[in-house]
Design a protein around this nucleic acid. Structure first.
Lengths: 346, 346
DNA sequence: TTGTACGCGTTATCAG
DNA sequence: CTGATAACGCGTACAA
C-alpha cells in the first residue's frame, strides 16, 4: 500500500480496454461501437469482457467530436414546474428514450432574451434536435434573431421543432387553440351563459392571444355583450390575482369566467372562493389544457383538453422524420364539468 | 449561383475565427475562453469581432475533451410530470443556471434497473455532478451495483448528491419525513381524530416507508387503534384507487385518511367524493409535500410542507461545495387546512 | 479480419 | 504576448 495515489483516477479509455483484451484500439472500437460487423467473434467477446471488467464507458464527448454528431435532444421550456411544460417534457423524454437519445432541458423563464441566449449556447452542444416549447412571445425584437439562429443550426444539419408556434419556417407541432376556445365558447352559450370575463396574459404571448381570440370568435353573432377582459400573469398566481381584481370591481354582471389556461383557472377559483364567491354555483369557471388537476378541484373544471404528452411525442417524431418543415396540428376537445353547470335562462 | 452547395454547412470553428481575425488559433482560443488575460486587447477585440461576424459557438464536446471536464449537471428523477420532482428539478435548474451549468434530465420511471442503467450511461457524458432524486427503492438487488457505479464516478472526480436517501456514502439532501409525519399525527390527534387509514406505497419505497413509520410513531402511546394500512401506487391514480377500495370495505370506522404524499391524497379526495363521501366533512384527509395544488383543492389539503425547490437548490450547492459527503437535512412543517377540521370529541 | 495513422475542435505547454 | 505543437478519446480510411 505504499505510494498509493487517491487522487482522481482517470476513467478507463478505449486504449485500456484494447490493451486488456490484447488487440488494437481500432479493433476494440469496432467491437464495441463499430457499425460494420467485421471483427472476429473471439476477439469481439474478449473486448466485451475487458470492457465489462474495467467498467468502461465510452466518452460521449469524444465520440461526438469524432463522429461529428451527438445523441442529444435539447428541449427549451418556460418553466419545468408548470404542468403544461412538464407534460410536454414527459412526452419528449419518453420518445427520446425509445430512440436512445438523451434529453437536456433548459428553462427560459418566459424571457425572449434568455430564450435566444439559450438557443445560441445550445448550438455549441451540437444536439441532434432542438425543440422549443412555446415560450415564444411575438414582437419582442429577438424573434428575427432567433429564427436566424435556428436556421443556421439547421443548415449545419440540426433538426428544429417548435411546439405551439405557427408561421415559422420549421417543423411545428401546433395546438388548435383557436378552434378549441371557439367551441368552448359555443358550449358555454349552449349551457345558458351569456356574460363573460376572460382572464388572459399579455397579448404578446401567442397561446394566450389565440385562445382569447378564439373565444371571442365563438361568441360573435350570439348577441351577447362583449366580455370583460382582464390581463394578468400566465400562471396560477396570475389567475388568483385577477380573480381578486374581478371581485373588487364587482361580479354581478358576469356569469362565467374563462381563463386561458387551467393553472390560471384553478388559481382564479381559489381566488373567487377566498372572496366568498363559490365557483360552479355563483359563477361558472372554465380553463384550457385539461391538466391532471382539473378533475381534482371542486367543482371539477370545465376545460379544453390538449394532448400535451402527445405533443411531446409528436415533436420528437417530427424531428426524426425527414420532413424539414411539416406542420402537425393536434386537436383539442371541450370537456364540460361541474364548474359550468347548465344555467337556466333568465 | 453556380456550384452552390446546399448540403449541411459545417459550423465555423476556432480555426475559421482565427483566420478571419488574422491571428493564430491559440490566440483566438485565449481571447475567447482563455483563463489568463494575457492577450493584447487589440487582438482580443479583433477576435471577438470575427467570432461575432461568423456567429461562432465553441464546440462544447471539443472543449470537454480538451479540458477533461464538462459544465453539465445530470439529474435523475422518477417522473418529470410529478410535481414533487418537477419542483426539485426547478430548484436544480435555477441553481445550475446561476453557475452557468447545463442540466440534463433522465427519467427512471421508478425502475431501479432503469435507474442503474441511466447512471451507468451517464458516466459516459462525464457530467460534473450527478444528482439522484429519490427514485431509489431498497432491497432491489441493484443497490450495491449503483453505489459501486457512483463511487467509481466520484473517484474519477465527479460529484454525487442524493436527494432523500440517507445512509449512502454520498452527499445527501434529506427531508425530515419521519419527523414531519410524526408531528402531523400528533396534530391530527390534537384535532380530535382517533381512527385512521394510511394510504402508502410499497414498503420498498423509502420515502413512503419513512412517512408511514413516522405517522405510526406519532400515534404511539396515544391509546388509539392501529391504523388501517392500504398499499397502493405512489401516484394520483394510486390514491384514487385506494380510496375506492377503502370505501368498498366500509369507512364507518375511519375518521381520517393520511396519504403519504399530496398527489395520492388529492386522488383519494376525488375517489372519496366520487363514492359520495365528502372529504373534510364526512372524513378527514391529509397528505405530505404541500405541492401548489394543495391549496387549490376543496377542502384545502392539510399536509406537511416540504421545501422541494429548495431541496434542488441545496443539492446543487452541496455538489459544488467541497464536502465530499455532507448530509443536509431540510425541515418539514405541518400545515393544517380545511380537509381536517377540528373534530368534536365523541 | 486487423492494425497504423490521421482527423475531429479545443486547450495547454513551451519556446520564441 | 504570441505561435507552433502536443495532447484529449475516439472513429475510420487506408494499407497490410
Amino acid at each position: 500500500m505504499i505510494g498509493m495515489d487517491d487522487g482522481p483516477k482517470a476513467p478507463p479509455t478505449l486504449h485500456d480496454v484494447a490493451r486488456e483484451a490484447g488487440v488494437s484500439i481500432a479493433t476494440a472500437s469496432r467491437a464495441l461501437n463499430g457499425s460494420s460487423r467485421n471483427v472476429r467473434s473471439e476477439n469481439a467477446s474478449r473486448v466485451r469482457a475487458a470492457a465489462a471488467k474495467l467498467d468502461y464507458e465510452p466518452h460521449l464527448s469524444a465520440q461526438a467530436i469524432a463522429k461529428g454528431s451527438t445523441r442529444t435532444v435539447a428541449l427549451v421550456v418556460r418553466d419545468v414546474a408548470d404542468p403544461y411544460f412538464s407534460s410536454i417534457a414527459a412526452g419528449v423524454t419518453q420518445a427520446a428514450q425509445e430512440c436512445r437519445l438523451i434529453v437536456t432541458m433548459a428553462v427560459a423563464g418566459g424571457s425572449p432574451e434568455r430564450e435566444l441566449e439559450i438557443v445560441r449556447t445550445l448550438r455549441g452542444r451540437r444536439p441532434r434536435v432542438i425543440i422549443v416549447a412555446g415560450s415564444r412571445v411575438d414582437g419582442s425584437g429577438t424573434r428575427g434573431t432567433l429564427v436566424e439562429e435556428l436556421t443556421e443550426y439547421r443548415t449545419a444539419g440540426g433538426r428544429v421543432v417548435l411546439i405551439s408556434q405557427r408561421d415559422l419556417p420549421f417543423g411545428t407541432v401546433t395546438i388548435d387553440n383557436r378552434g378549441g376556445a371557439e367551441r368552448l365558447a359555443r358550449a358555454l352559450l349552449a349551457a345558458g351563459y351569456r356574460r363573460f370575463a376572460v382572464l388572459h396574459a399579455q397579448e404578446r404571448i401567442r397561446t394566450s392571444r389565440e385562445r382569447h381570440d378564439g373565444f371571442l370568435a365563438g361568441l360573435r353573432h350570439a348577441g351577447v355583450p362583449e366580455p370583460l377582459a382582464i390581463e394578468t400573469g400566465f400562471t396560477r398566481a396570475g389567475g388568483y390575482e385577477a380573480a381578486r381584481r374581478l371581485v373588487e370591481r364587482g361580479v354581478a354582471d358576469v356569469e362565467a369566467v374563462f381563463a386561458v389556461n387551467d393553472v390560471m383557472a384553478i388559481g382564479a377559483m381559489t381566488g373567487l372562493r377566498d372572496a366568498g364567491i363559490v365557483p360552479g354555483r355563483d359563477i361558472g369557471v372554465a380553463g384550457f389544457d385539461d391538466i391532471d388537476a382539473a378533475v381534482d378541484v371542486v367543482p371539477a373544471l370545465t376545460t379544453v383538453a390538449v394532448p400535451l404528452r402527445e405533443a411531446g411525442l409528436t415533436a420528437m417524431r417530427l424531428a426524426l422524420s425527414d420532413e424539414e418543415t411539416a406542420d402537425h396540428s393536434l386537436p383539442t376537445n371541450v370537456v364540460l364539468r361541474e364548474s359550468t353547470p347548465p344555467r337556466p335562462p333568465t
